[in-house]
């Protein structure tokens, strides 16, 4: 199931999404918590970037920041977000609303709760279409039927007037994807799109997401904690830890030759059929809470290869083979850490 590792777009194409040194903080009575700290990455047209990490690593928060839906008291405290070269992190509410849905589509985790139970699928689709595109009611409905057909709903013209509860979980997730695609966005943020689904349905949904990039050149940010999903779908992977990017690189490189000790541990914890489950590596300890991130490298309390400078100096992303890793090991023996 391994995919072609070359990015499908040519290298000269400007990225659809570019996140530079993003800082997201929560300002509360107890002080300020930095939930995202200096996060940078980019996604090229047609590319699928997988974002992995444990719960609380900041994956979903990154997605929410990009789409401009951070919930109070969280807010962007630094860095910038560029969509096709245009800065979007400081847009006023009314303009950001037009970016959402029109240029960035979102797919949420739970298809059972993502759809409004009181409106038909068609009503939800046509409303979204009419909000962003200048189409007549009839044309909007025709586009809604097309979209349902595209995401693989059988007999879409008959199903369009059904309510969400008439659809199964997998079918509802297809409807959610259709809703995200209403205005043909340049970027789709899929936050755990398959976590709530059966394994057989998961594969179908992932295939659908892969087809987006292939057929429409849509860039996809695929947020998941499931390495299997990443291996099957993503072109590149960003591994997040405690609100920072630990390592980013081509999927095969990350899986086969991880560089950051955290990524090494993460790959060791993925069970492989045919191998003894007792060989699974477990990373000792747990990810620090946001109010207790140690100075230096956030991973230093759990790292087996911790050095003196890891305790005081925070490593930035450094070249490591075909990837980049935020680890001081890369500074001394570049590209030869695993």
């Amino acid at each position: 199931m391994q995919r072609d590792q070359q990015p499908r777009s040519d290298a000269a194409a400007p990225p659809i999404l570019e996140v530079r040194n993003l800082v997201v903080a929560f300002h509360g009575l107890a002080g300020t918590l930095r939930a995202l700290d200096d996060v940078s990455f980019s996604i090229a047209p047609g590319e699928i970037l997988g974002v992995v990490g444990e719960s609380g690593a900041g994956k979903s928060l990154t997605g929410a920041a990009v789409i401009g839906l951070l919930e109070r008291p969280g807010r962007i405290d630094g860095g910038e977000i560029l969509l096709a070269g245009r800065r979007i992190d400081n847009l006023p509410h009314a303009q950001m609303r037009k970016v959402r849905g029109r240029e960035i589509g979102a797919i949420f985790q739970d298809p059972l709760t993502s759809l409004n139970p009181l409106l038909t699928v068609g009503e939800q689709l046509t409303e979204t279409i009419a909000t962003h595109l200048a189409l007549s009611a009839k044309a909007a409905r025709a586009r809604a039927v097309e979209l349902l057909a595209e995401v693989g709903i059988p007999a879409p013209a008959n199903r369009i007037d059904d309510y969400p509860h008439h659809f199964s979980g997998g079918m509802r997730q297809r409807v959610v994807i259709a809703l995200a695609l209403c205005a043909n966005p340049k970027l789709v943020i899929a936050d755990e799109p398959t976590t709530a689904l059966d394994v057989s349905v998961q594969a179908q949904i992932l295939e659908l997401i892969r087809r987006l990039g292939r057929e429409h050149g849509t860039a996809v940010m695929l947020i998941t904690h499931d390495m299997g999903v990443i291996a099957e779908t993503a072109d590149r992977v960003a591994v997040m830890y405690a609100g920072r990017v630990a390592e980013i690189g081509p999927t095969r490189e990350i899986i086969e030759t991880p560089h950051h000790p955290y990524t090494v541990g993460l790959m060791g914890s993925v069970p492989v059929i045919g191998e003894d489950a007792e060989d699974l590596v477990q990373i000792d300890g747990s990810m620090p809470r946001l109010n207790a991130i140690p100075p230096g490298c956030a991973f230093n309390p759990r790292c087996g290869e911790v050095m003196g400078r890891c305790l005081s100096q925070r490593p930035g992303l450094m070249p490591a083979g075909r990837s980049q890793a935020a680890c001081w090991l890369m500074d001394t023996v570049t590209g030869d850490a695993a």
Partner: peptide, 14 residues
């Protein structure tokens, strides 16, 4: 609820 968050993410009017 999720469906209101999703409605916001689709850029629907307030």
């Amino acid at each position: 609820t999720d469906y209101i968050k999703f409605a916001r993410a689709r850029g629907l009017r307030d």
